[in-house]
Simulated assay, not measured.
Amino acid sequence: MHLAFVTSLVPDGTLTTGYEIANAAIIDGLRRAGVQVSVVGFTWPGKQPIDPENTVVLGSVDVQTHTASAGQRLLWLGRALAEGQTFSSVKLRHTGEVRIRKALQTLEPFDGYVLNGVTLAGAYPDLFRNKPSIFVAHNVEHQSAAENAVAARSLVERLLYTREARLLKQLEAKLCKQADFVFTLAEEDRVPLGIADDRRSATLPLTTRATAFLPLSSRQPAYDLALIGTWTWQPNRIGLDWFLEQVVPQLPHSMQIKIAGRAPAGLRSDHPGVEFVGRVEDATAFVRGAKVIPLISQAGSGVQLKTIETFELGMPAVATRSSLRGIADVPENCTVADDPAAFALALTHAARLRLVDGDGRAFHAAQIKAMDRQISRGLAALPRSMQRHAA
């Protein structure tokens, strides 16, 4: 079976975001199942695909809103309003349908599509209907947009997120309806997407890497807590704001808290132990430098890749229930707490007691096994559809 993996950004080997990590895991899973996968999408500016022989590049694009100029943001917004498109999809509309059709023709013969996320498939919703398809819903995007609207800091932001939520709900319903099978990354996402029927959808467990981390014979933490993420992404920012405003004030002043990753300007904390360290060269080493990992998600959908990586490393953690979406088996050295006071108390106890590390290899192996099983289910739905398309 030969499938075109249609995605906004093609893998380039730099797994810096959860989206990129998930894409690599899904492509690896399809190839383990014996599928010939050809990737179709855009590259980041200055980047090259990691697998050029099996990749069709549609062009180069920087889809980050926070780094775009004011003029570029206004151009995207104007086009989105004029064309009735979501803000995220309109960024990919400059290529044009004709060019994408020609790119797809270079892959023939192929059997179907894997529509990876809503962005590129949503930019051209009628382009990928001539063959069977699997839709990968990384998140319930309309739900995330609605949560962003509630958390918006201005009326204009609230109105834009509300519009995005309305359009995304329509778009996700369309993509789910036309797909022959849908993968979500969290069980909780199937109902709001209207695809809870086991014959039409399945939850896809993920890993953050192809091979398991080897446990360290000894680990000497240099600080108490470590958080890492792209904090400019609104769902992540909502969790970080909750942590800084409601949890951190209840932590001992002696506690050392390192926060790595891209952060919005002006982000700060009055706690003397909080340090924003920006980008780190080795994310794994940074995480392993902590006694405990706070898993702080408060919003969004899909799966938290940082949660999976924490469990793959065997690290002690304190997690909100939202952080555990898509996780069937929570390790024993993870405490679950949603109340800010209980969360702070659990972090304090875990850091003082110096909870032992687990062996994340068993968790990684279980995720791989479950993922392969679910991919087989999704692929089994395509041959029947291929016959219908041929007829």
Rank of each mutant, 00 (worst) to 15 (best):
A146D: 02
G302K: 04
A337P: 06
V39N: 03
K306I: 14
T67M: 06
L216S: 15
L155M: 15
I259S: 00
T162D: 02
A103K: 09
Q256K: 14
A137T: 00
S269P: 12
G326F: 11
P249Q: 12
L193R: 01
S133G: 04
A381Q: 05
Q246D: 12
I327Q: 01
E172H: 09
V114M: 04
I100N: 03
K91N: 10
F243P: 02
A196Y: 12
I257N: 07
L324T: 05
K258T: 05
E141M: 06
R190F: 15
E281L: 09
P49M: 14
A4D: 08
S297N: 12
W231I: 06
P252A: 10
I134M: 07
A222I: 13
G229R: 00
D189H: 05
G358F: 00
H364W: 15
S323C: 13
P264C: 08
R163D: 01
G84M: 07
D189E: 14
L167T: 02
L382F: 10
H138T: 00
P264F: 07
V274Q: 03
T207N: 10
H94L: 15
R268M: 14
K174Q: 11
A173R: 03
L175K: 00
A222H: 09
Y161W: 15
S69K: 04
Y19R: 02
P49F: 14
L160F: 13
H253K: 14
Q64P: 07
G71W: 12
I293R: 02
